[in-house]
Design a protein around this nucleic acid. Sequence first.
DNA 1: CTGAAAGCGCTTACAG
DNA 2: CTGAAAGCGCTTACAG
Lengths: 340, 340
Amino acid sequence: MKNRITLKDLAKDLNLSPSTISRALGNHPAISDATKKRVQKKADEKGFTPNSIASSFRMKKTRSLGVIVPRIDIHFHSLVISGIEDFAYKNNYNVTIYQSKDALKREQEITKILQTRMVDGIISCLSIETTNCKHFKKFNKLGVPLVFYDRVPTDFDASKIVINDFESSFTATEHLIKSGCKRIGHIAGNQKTNIFKARLEGYKAALKSYDLPVDETLIMQTNSLSYDEGVACAKKYLSLPELPDGLFCANDYTAVSAIQVFRKNEIKIPQQVAIVGFSNYPISRIIEPNLTTVNDRAFHMGEASAKLLIRQIEDNNDIIDSEIITLKTELIIRESSRIG
Amino acid sequence: MKNRITLKDLAKDLNLSPSTISRALGNHPAISDATKKRVQKKADEKGFTPNSIASSFRMKKTRSLGVIVPRIDIHFHSLVISGIEDFAYKNNYNVTIYQSKDALKREQEITKILQTRMVDGIISCLSIETTNCKHFKKFNKLGVPLVFYDRVPTDFDASKIVINDFESSFTATEHLIKSGCKRIGHIAGNQKTNIFKARLEGYKAALKSYDLPVDETLIMQTNSLSYDEGVACAKKYLSLPELPDGLFCANDYTAVSAIQVFRKNEIKIPQQVAIVGFSNYPISRIIEPNLTTVNDRAFHMGEASAKLLIRQIEDNNDIIDSEIITLKTELIIRESSRIG
DNA sequence: CTGAAAGCGCTTACAG
DNA sequence: CTGAAAGCGCTTACAG
């Protein structure tokens, strides 16, 4: 950053004051068109670009959003970030990203950095270790709006963008029931996490509402819904006296691994076991048979987060304390549950 | 951002000057330990956090890196960003990201934004449309270092982090040859892009060096190496009088689609056709049979980019103009090429 | 060991 | 329609 042209330089060249240059470039109505043209021409000629740090400093607005995600390389989060960046870009905001690596300590450190960086607002998905959100409270005092998505705090009021995990799971399970399944299993995520708890509850509620029994031997608990855990769960199903005829998995990885384990054991999908996943990962379209899954709208979640956050930044109307937006999901029906 | 505590506030409280507060918090050697302690205590007590925008403005250093990627939601790029963020975080840099969406126009706009944002350095992978990099030249004049990765400019000197596509492809093809393949096909990427050109060349060179003929009917051209294009290519192979016995694909998507098309046609992988992909996408470990592929070190590419960039930012030594670092790849041998 | 002063490049209320 | 002036919150060369 050397010998940048400043407003002062332009002013000297044009025999005008820096105030006038600033206003001309900002298209201020009080400045004559003739002057605006002269200034713009000189600015282009000299390759002037405003120093937005100086402007941010002066205005106490940085037009940047801080985003804290567990990991950027998880597809769900990269889609969310993509949605955030897209919306932010269109509205002239910048996006600065941080990874908590699912570690509370790192998340806390990042909030300290964000506190000094003067971002105009923050979007975050909590780390898996975070049970207490007090490190986010400081932003309330500083007047920096927060929006959480996916893994959201329960211990304090904040704006949130979520999907209806309960309802989505209800619908997914209902789809299996309506397809004729009577013994439906569930591979469940970590029950310390609200979204996975809701998915289990939605599954149970659907069974109940169709007068099907909730058979605990058909519900498999996992820690992180990893591919390997999915393989282990599928093997457990195989060791049961009777196989389930339907399986709703709390994510796509476990659903894919179940498909593979079952097929290796000559079990026909969906004829013998119909399978539904959750999240619409890219692999769900590639695995054979293609996986029926819940589109969790990751990109839209990012867009919605950015939209809500920017509205909160720009609304001087201090009446709204927090806002919770629930996005619609969509059950994408593919071969893995298309029976007969 | 309201009623933030400033150095001046602390100074007033402690009957010291702002200069002393600044130096005390910056652990300046000239300040007595007693004063440092007093200042630190008061700062903690009042919840002081430095305004880093003011500091950036003053120092003309923002400690932030601008990153331009085609899309964040492409796994390769999200891994690279993850590597960048990780290294940057450890070195107290922030990472601001932009997506070009593979559009030259948007890439140009982003460079204009970055010019005003005063980032200390820029990391970028060129958009697919970019053939002319003159919109990056301004950063040379501004003294803002640039590092390109993966898709890098050929028309001007710049620091680059790349892998050796030629050699990696040579090794991958050689592996097929050594496994006993004699008729090896190649699904090639867009030949306007250097990396895909290099992959094709590496494949051809390996054949030649083992005295195998280069059979153009076994080389399929694609536009974007998409899954669907892979399916189409695989079908073309099936329509040939004789199938290849080995297939080196310029990415994993096309390799996966080839596996699926072949298997649907009762062709045994790897016994009848051995297949090798490129990039080590997550799906390569999941597809059956598991895909042999080239680990392109996306995360390390990000780390290396950030490392090189930060070194260029912090080295006042103006002797180095640009630096090109080639990373080692690794051939991961899995079932899809393990013959016999 | 500490302070007074200048200045980074903008923006804007005030004056004319 | 344009300008002079103040100030955002830091940092640091200079002085003592």
